[in-house]
Simulated assay, not measured.
Amino acid sequence: MLVKTDLSEEELGLYNPAFVGFLLLACLREFVVTKPGGMHCALSFLVVPMCLNRSITKTLPKTYKTPIGVWMSSNEGVLSGFANQAEAFIPIVNMGLLFLMERDLIVINSEGCAVLGENDIAKNPALFNKSSYMNEALKAFKFIGKWFSHAPSTETVFAQLGIRP
């Protein structure tokens, strides 16, 4: 289990577990609309670094119907260092997932998929309207949740992004 001292104060301030956890929860809410069985927890390790990188979020397609492979081939330059970036985000993603699990907001099932727990947390908190960064991040997480839910499999998403799980 990670402790907060694994990250610098600046990293904790920017990527605190509650913030990242809420964004992952928003992503999961969109994902389960299409796939009620849940989102494989490994996808969280792609979602977070993608959605918290403005260079990537600015290039996201306009519609979830765009195949990931098509988007990837037209944005290879933006994604050239993505594998290293995803690796750097592992502790941040772990802390966000742990935050959600400790509060029973998500449950990881026997297939390794995150499913929604019981919660009445607002889907669009007013706080997110006060910051363009937070609002853009929330939109990106929701979009990626919907987009990834239409992919054939978790393995396909990883393969198309050139990442080994």
Rank of each mutant, 00 (worst) to 15 (best):
Leu2Phe: 09
Val3Trp: 06
Lys4Asn: 12
Asp6Arg: 01
Leu7Asn: 06
Glu9Trp: 04
Pro17Arg: 08
Gly21Val: 04
Phe22Asn: 09
Phe22Arg: 11
Phe22Gln: 06
Leu25Pro: 02
Leu25Ser: 04
Cys27Asn: 11
Glu30His: 06
Val32Cys: 08
Pro36Gln: 11
Gly38Lys: 06
His40Asn: 15
Ser44Trp: 01
Val47Thr: 15
Val47Arg: 05
Met50Ile: 09
Cys51Gly: 15
Asn53Phe: 02
Thr59Ser: 15
Leu60Met: 13
Pro61Leu: 07
Thr66Gln: 10
Pro67Cys: 05
Ile68Phe: 04
Gly69Phe: 02
Val70Tyr: 07
Ser74Tyr: 00
Glu76Ala: 14
Glu76Thr: 10
Glu76Lys: 15
Gly81Ser: 13
Ile92Ala: 02
Ile92Asp: 03
Ile92Thr: 07
Asn94Gln: 11
Asn94Lys: 13
Leu98Ile: 08
Leu105Asp: 01
Leu105Val: 10
Cys113Ala: 15
Ala114Leu: 15
Ala114Tyr: 01
Val115Thr: 14
Gly117Asn: 09
Glu118Leu: 13
Asp120Leu: 07
Asp120Ile: 04
Ala122Gly: 07
Ala122Gln: 13
Lys123Leu: 13
Lys123Tyr: 04
Ala126Gln: 10
Leu127Thr: 12
Phe128Pro: 00
Phe128Trp: 14
Phe128Met: 09
Lys130Ser: 08
Ser131Asp: 08
Asn135Gln: 10
Ala137Pro: 01
Leu138Asn: 04
Ala140Met: 10
Lys142Gly: 11
Lys142Glu: 11
Ile144Cys: 14
Gly145Met: 07
Trp147Asp: 09
Ser149Thr: 05
Thr156Trp: 07
Gln160Lys: 14
Leu161Gly: 09
Gly162Trp: 10
Arg164Val: 15
Arg164Thr: 15
Pro165Lys: 13
